[in-house]
Design a protein around this nucleic acid. Structure first.
Lengths: 419, 419
DNA sequence: CAAATTAAATTCATCTCTCGAATTAAAAAA
DNA sequence: TTTTTTAATTCGAGAGATGAATTTAATTTG
């Protein structure tokens, strides 16, 4: 072991020092693409804006924007709104929206959603589909996806040939690179070759990812994350998910399996999680965790079957009405949420945490107390607490995040095609 | 909130979509630097090696290596060891070691260490200094650093003018970018302006960082991390530290405060940590955590004062001798280590975890059982477990990591100077 | 031993990208 | 109308990389 620290091997040649593997070079975007993406991000931008934002010369700005205009991706805005000030008025540029279109889809256990956007990121149409809540075969779910795509296409008066790419987000363990699904609660079979089946069936490029990543991407492209290049997203829905953006890019661990906040352990030998282990954060926070205690607090018979959502609503109103047992359930969940958030801050030190949950009305979970407790549970050493925002966005926003995944791939292609 | 999701504002201009902040472009290294670093990493490399490794053309390799040779950074190796095979024999290149030198220093509470390396990363001399274990003023500690530097310089027969940069790693909260120390157990004052004081006193550029980051850098430059571009390092010493490498670069959170694994909570209202909070991982794992239970297990009177190390050694031999109470102390610590590692895997999904601890003889902590438990506590879904290696390196390796920090800055400068 | 073969390294015309100084363009102010 | 101011364009120059052709230095073969 200590051998590795010696300066040379037997032959006398130095062993060298420093990383042996190359750094990822895929991050290098061409100046043209940076300009395009800056214009799209700003909505509208003049060449001078571009020069200042990207630190390039005026000559480059002229040449590269001309390329983008000739390629039909950007255009000058005619309706100049009479700016004040002297000098030649600047001409704004904007993305031509209807050159490419993308569909983003969020698959859930009860409800699928789809969004169709143009190349500027505008939502043109949405659709949704109720679905029986049980695991399905790959064929079944692709049929549902097909229905959903048809719905959103006809709502936008487009057809399948117009779509440059599709993004899909689904819960479970998803291998984004391979386009496969090692496991998902939505699928009856493991290791589904989702993307290639999709692409042979629909003949459209598919970009598949974890649903928490899609929500994170939605925040990066359309939400509060736009103004931050490093932030974390925590979701509390059926389970507890997480996404992380570092330097404007989604972080996916070495094997594409990281960020499983819901299954980090917050209690040795703690409550039973649906994953089969004990002490997972999710086992204190997810809807099923609250629901199973609710039965006790509400003195239900085990035989009484009720939908989890209805059960939780009953529990919440009981808590509000003063039921001590019901209150402790929410309070404990809130405390564990604080612990989970504190651990995220402690490990990742994000510039911002965005908490996103459907059941915002459960204010026990989203109260200032929870954030204060999170702050108490963090080593801060006098520095200001990590900023936290709470959003309650519906499935359409998740689907919009999936469009962002597709759009960014389409953008790469479209700009690279200029050459 | 939902306003952010609309397509345009009042003026009719689109609000745009996508990240507003630019991505860090500092990652773009020139081809010349990539070649230099590849040669240094390989120890020796031919131009053809470079061509294959970096995917550049033969013409570029000739031109760029010629630049590096003319600049005095690389040289051709004369002693060709008669390779087999036909064709013109390749000429190996290597770094000229004695063009630049750097010193790396690890500051601890009882013991400082220093290493002097040349530009190829070879260790030329080492030095160490015993120091009274109490917080010191900035001036005092800089005096100690000065002594240490003199020692290592004279051992290598060099003087201060030869040193191109110094790297220092110390425990506590360290702001690498600013070169300041918001808090450290080694310093009596908070918010010390460490780097600027150092630089005015010694007139050498200083690169300051957290000590766990230095160990991580040592693994990346000299150890098992060389062959991985993404890995995590966990250290169990006086506290519990962590470092993370993503794409061959150290991850430092948004405010340079992340990766505080020791203060993630693994038990609500758990054991008391020296940070004042309860349930921190460190409160179950660090030496002081074991020591305070040792007193109970060994039936010591609270009055009996003993050094923590001696106490731990006594505890360990008792455990080995069959003392049940002593055994449970180690066993529990081992279980919590499993939890901590499992959480790291679950959140970061590294390609490799390197565990580094001084007290390797405490096999309860480093047994296969701990790793097996870690694996059990992780959602794997059939995939292979995260690779784990255990290293027990002394302070000199930490100091060597600090030289890597200095060397990489010197390299940036030296290669950029070629123009 | 000379010729053929093989692989490494170099040379050089070319292409892309970017810069920056000079110039042109389009407005308001004098 | 002239001057001033700011935006945008043009164009020559240089860096960086490529790839085809060539040179170099060895081994293998006849």
């Amino acid at each position: 072991m200590l051998n590795e620290l010696t300066a040379s091997d037997d032959s006398g040649a130095p062993v060298g020092c420093g990383p042996l593997l190359p750094s990822g070079t895929a991050n290098a975007k061409s100046m043209r693409q940076q300009i395009f993406e800056h214009v799209r991000a700003a909505g509208r931008a003049t060449r001078t804006d571009v020069i200042r934002a990207l630190g390039i010369s005026a000559g480059s700005a002229t040449a590269l924007t001309a390329d983008l205009i000739n390629a039909g991706l950007l255009r000058e805005v005619e309706s100049i709104p009479r700016e004040t000030g002297r000098g030649r008025p600047a001409v704004a540029l904007e993305v031509i929206p209807d050159t490419h279109f993308a569909i983003g889809i969020k698959l859930s256990d009860e409800f699928h959603s789809a969004v169709l956007t143009d190349f500027a990121g505008n939502t043109l149409a949405t659709a949704s589909l109720k679905t029986p809540p049980h695991p399905k075969s790959l064929d079944e779910i692709l049929t549902e996806v097909g229905t959903l795509m048809q719905d959103v296409l006809s709502a936008a008066n487009k057809n399948q040939q117009n779509i440059a790419a599709v993004g899909i987000g689904m819960s479970g363990i998803v291998d984004h690179q391979a386009g496969t699904v090692p496991w998902s609660p939505l699928l009856a079979t493991r290791n589904s070759d989702f993307a290639s089946h999709f692409e042979t069936r629909f003949a459209i490029p598919l970009h598949l990812d974890n649903d928490a990543n899609m929500l994170t991407l939605a925040e990066l492209w359309f939400g509060a994350g736009r103004a931050k290049s490093d932030f974390a997203v925590v979701t509390i829905e059926h389970g507890v998910g997480m996404g992380l953006v570092i330097d404007n890019r989604l972080y996916r661990g070495a094997r594409g399996m990281g960020l499983e906040l819901g299954h980090t352990k917050v209690q040795l030998d703690g409550a039973l999680c649906r994953c089969g282990q004990r002490g997972c954060l999710e086992a204190y926070l997810a809807d099923y965790a609250l629901a199973r205690e609710a039965a006790t607090a509400l003195h239900h018979q085990p035989s009484e079957r009720q939908s989890p959502n209805a059960l939780l609503d009953a529990l919440f109103s009981q808590a509000k009405a003063g039921n001590e047992a019901a209150q402790t359930i929410f309070r404990r969940a809130g405390r564990y949420l604080s612990v989970g958030l504190a651990n995220v801050v402690q490990l990742f030190d994000p510039a911002l945490i965005i908490i996103s949950g459907e059941r915002m009305q459960y204010d026990y979970l989203y109260a200032d107390e929870v954030l204060a407790e999170m702050h108490r549970l963090t080593l801060n050493d006098g520095r200001s607490a990590c900023a936290v925002e709470t959003h309650a966005w519906g499935d359409l926003v998740w689907a919009r995040g999936a469009t962002a995944l597709a759009l960014s791939a389409v953008t790469d292609q479209a700009v690279a095609a200029i050459s």
